[in-house]
Design a protein around this nucleic acid. Structure first.
Lengths: 306, 306
DNA sequence: GTGAAAGCGCTAACAA
DNA sequence: TTGTTAGCGCTTTCAC
């Protein structure tokens, strides 16, 4: 024990001996009750199996344990009822703070004041959110992908976005703006954030006569669905359709000549979220901050010139 | 509130009104301290980013929340010191029980009696473990893969295994036995359980003059390394080398004609582990049980006849 | 059916 | 420097 309070060596020895003899373990529930700090944070995401959240979670946990905190992980499946339930649980746990990737419905109604603990939103925010946040520069990232496709000569570009998160909306905005600026149409479709929904949507879209030459897909989960759709339709990229997306997952450089993606700084997102939470605890009254991180365009074969 | 104790409707109304008015939230720390049950389980795995553990964790959490329990997730990075640290933390939390994927060093030294809570091991066990466990039939699964390769005409088969887990040892045993029974050599290599270590090992192995015709790789993480090695060496399967492995990850059917793998029943593993823990809490004295689940051989192009 | 009181295992505050 | 005490917010028990 490194704790050097005002105790003589003799007493310390005696106490430590007793601790060892009795195999003593402090009771954290009692400590939390008495000291009124739980050293526990909540991490609420839609699904830990989404590799983006897996990676962010791991970074958050590392950072949390490094700061002597524990984390309670909650999966909401993009379900606002579950979100509300878990927020309530966090109150009952008297957590120190929460890191939260909310759905679109929830994002504006989160009130840290009412909740009783600070909240840092990750991945998803909106202008009217009342909390700190760390997000990707989604508009710019989407615009970068569009810019790259334009540069490669594509003109007929479609976008596929998730319909539950603000992130999807932001990426759609960046996508639309970039195409509008180029004087082009910006056909977009919105689907539930699942591999299956994306697969079906892409399958259908590409079977239509006016199918796009290139497809921008809004996240790693949907991108997997798109890849499955192309595979099952026997289509190849970039010949039949160019494909770009978000999230540099482990398999994106393994397929053919690789998929062009925007890589999110997942570790930095997790670390920053945790750091912001700690700063907020230090200074409860500081004004709200939103940290915007830049993605990294990783160009691979799926988007090159025909 | 559905709790119907011996209270009159009048009082109940009054109390519920007060709860609503004060926005009351029970303090779980206080409840745990007084009631002496935490309704919390620990889940200790090597790394949540390993998709096998991601999937199992999600299943465990769903099952836990369904039973009114919370779960504390710990990543050990296959480091015995971290394992010990987290077990100690679990004691301080007074957890109801722990689900644990231990390293080889740790597996035999876990004593639930001394720890003070029941333990269910997942993924990894040994004969001398003193706890309940749920595992894959690793020997049989490895033997199945070998059998499949033999049937496809391969004779020169190498095996790559992780060197920190008992699982790797079991799969190696099944691999060796199956090849010995066929009167063939069973060249095997052991590496740290990381993508990079596997990539390097495979790269080196395939550069040797006596390189195998087929490679069996012991888990999804190593398999990814092997795929990267083949790709960077410009080798193709099954022509240059056949490839089979464990864990049916999302990308395994996307590469070329697909990778032949044994799929683990990840959801069932998680659910079963949780169920065994609950049963053990119900009947502390029942004898130790090990549930052995069967994998499913998924044959794809990477192992077909030349 | 209801209210009062004790005490879970700690920490913080105070007295010696 | 050390020992004592009160009390965190619940649940359990017991008296009414």
């Amino acid at each position: 024990m490194l704790c050097n309070g005002p105790v003589s060596d003799k007493v310390r020895k005696r106490v430590e001996a007793a601790m060892a003899r009795l195999d003593y373990r402090p009771n954290l529930a009692a400590r939390r009750l008495r000291s009124q700090h739980t050293d526990t944070i909540g991490l609420i995401v839609s699904d830990i199996r989404n590799p983006f959240f897996t990676a962010v979670s791991r970074a958050v946990e590392d950072e949390a344990y490094r700061n002597g905190m524990r984390v309670i992980l909650c999966n909401t499946d993009e379900n606002p009822d579950k979100e509300a339930m878990y927020l309530r649980l966090m109150q009952e746990e008297r957590v120190t703070g929460v890191i939260f990737a909310p759905t679109r419905q929830m994002v504006a109604s989160i009130d840290p004041q009412a909740l009783g603990f600070p909240v840092v939103m990750i991945d998803r925010v909106s202008a009217d959110a009342a909390t700190d946040a760390v997000v990707l520069d989604n508009r710019r990232a989407a615009a970068q992908l569009v810019g790259h496709l334009l540069q490669q000569g594509y003109r007929d570009i479609g976008g596929l976005f998730g319909n539950t998160s603000n992130t999807g909306m932001e990426r759609h905005a960046g996508f639309s703006e970039a195409l509008q600026q180029a004087g082009l149409a910006a056909p977009a479709r919105f689907v539930a954030p699942s591999v299956e929904a994306a697969e079906q949507a892409v399958l259908q879209w590409l079977a239509e006569p006016a199918r796009p030459q290139a497809l921008l897909v809004s996240n790693g989960v949907l991108l997997l669905g798109a890849v499955r759709a192309l595979k099952s339709a026997g289509l190849h990229w970039p010949q039949d359709v160019a494909l770009v997306g978000f999230d540099n997952e482990v398999w994106t450089d393994l397929l053919g000549d690789g998929l062009t993606v925007v890589e999110q700084p997942v570790n930095e997102i997790g670390r920053t979220a945790m750091a912001m939470l700690l700063e907020r605890l230090d200074e409860p009254e500081r004004s709200q901050r939103i940290v915007v991180l830049q993605g990294k365009l990783v160009v691979r074969g799926s988007s090159l010139t025909l």
